[in-house]
């Protein structure tokens, strides 16, 4: 057990034993070394299995909307999760008073697929030692560097530290470089429309429409998703180019001003489809056009939920663009 795990466990234990929360949402490790699971602790005795490491790949804020507003929830949050919680609070999906956020500065999520690609199958255990990661397989031991295993979204992460946690465990990490996300989008924007179109199709048309991206996303909590709507049916139902493209376009667009770039969608995707190049672009537009960054507080409404008369726009009045 790591020092950080001990601290998280102690805090969770305090919250549960003093009956300050009804449930603590964190991670636990079962047999699968690469796949810690989201875990829901309601009693202090259960906390023995609580785990926290670089392979905890889910955005726990995803589970917030499953509980009624009255449920008092303790939740382990990293930078992105904290901002997702904030974004959900803006949308009135829970009550801040009923949340205890156990903040953990994040070193970035390790991409298990990268590990498997580098070490082969049969991984038995993964040990993290600061900047190096030690992977034991059936036959071998590999010493890898954390940086090369980081999930792409985490490489570009801007805010690794929880911004409004109730307790902060562990040492704060330096803030990320805002240029990294911009660089990637700028690279795509520099391509010709045909090239961008080919990129988009190449990604979108591998989709198998399992909707793992939707289900893994804390902000996708609609009771009925537009793709499940049958009357009218908004998109092709099957794995047709039109159906797959529509899913990727609209899913991403519904995240405008709501996505925290946590990358949970990409980590969940079974077909390794890139999606953050869509949401990051929208995020940057929101920052540039409306100076809005998702989840930085619990009150500022996202741009599409607010209106002003003086927007710059490309609507044509009297034959001129204003």
């Amino acid at each position: 057990m790591t020092e950080l795990e001990t601290k998280i466990r102690a805090e969770a234990e305090r919250l549960l034993s003093e009956s300050l929360v009804d449930v603590v949402i964190a991670f636990r490790q079962e047999d699968a070394p690469l796949h810690p699971q989201p875990a829901f602790f309601t009693r202090a005795e259960e906390l023995e299995s609580l785990a926290y490491n670089g392979l905890c790949a889910n955005n726990l804020a995803n589970y917030l909307t499953r509980y009624p507003q009255e449920t008092r929830i303790g939740m382990v949050v990293r930078g992105c999760e904290n901002r997702s919680v904030n974004a959900l609070l803006v949308e009135k999906q829970h009550t801040r008073e009923n949340l205890v956020l156990i903040g953990v500065p994040c070193e970035g999520i390790l991409d298990w697929r990268r590990i498997v690609a580098l070490t082969g199958e049969n991984v038995f255990s993964v040990e993290e030692k600061g900047e190096s990661v030690c992977v034991h397989t059936r036959e071998n031991t590999f010493a890898l560097s954390r940086v090369e295993l980081l999930h792409p979204s985490c490489q570009r992460c801007l805010h690794p530290n929880p911004i409004s946690a109730d307790v902060l465990l562990g040492d704060p990490k330096p803030e990320g470089d805002p240029h990294l996300m911009r660089l990637r989008i700028a690279e795509l924007e520099a391509l010709t429309p045909a090239e961008r179109n080919a990129w988009f199709k190449h990604e979108a048309e591998r989709c198998i429409r399992c909707y793992a991206c939707r289900e893994a996303c804390p902000m996708c909590y609609c009771t009925e998703c537009f793709v499940d709507h049958t009357e009218p049916r908004w998109t092709d139902s099957g794995v047709t180019p039109a159906g797959m493209q529509a899913w990727h376009i609209i899913r991403a667009f519904h995240q405008s001003g709501r996505c925290t770039s946590c990358g949970a969608c990409e980590r969940a995707c079974p077909m390794d489809i890139q999606m953050t190049y869509l949401t990051d672009k929208l995020n940057l537009d929101m920052i540039d056009a409306y100076q809005f960054e998702v989840g930085m507080d619990t009150t500022t409404q996202p741009p599409f939920a607010t209106l002003t008369l003086d927007d710059k726009n490309r609507f044509i009045t009297q034959g001129k663009r204003s």
């Binding site: 699971q37 989201p38 875990a39 793992a212 939707r214 289900e215 893994a216 969940a268 079974p270």
Partner: peptide, 22 residues
């Protein structure tokens, strides 16, 4: 509690055969 409710396990399953006619 932890299940996301996505279709990965069933779509990647070699024996799952459920279909919908639309």
């Amino acid at each position: 509690q932890s299940c996301l409710g996505c279709g990965i396990c069933t779509f990647l399953c070699p024996t799952c055969f459920c279909f919908d006619i639309v």
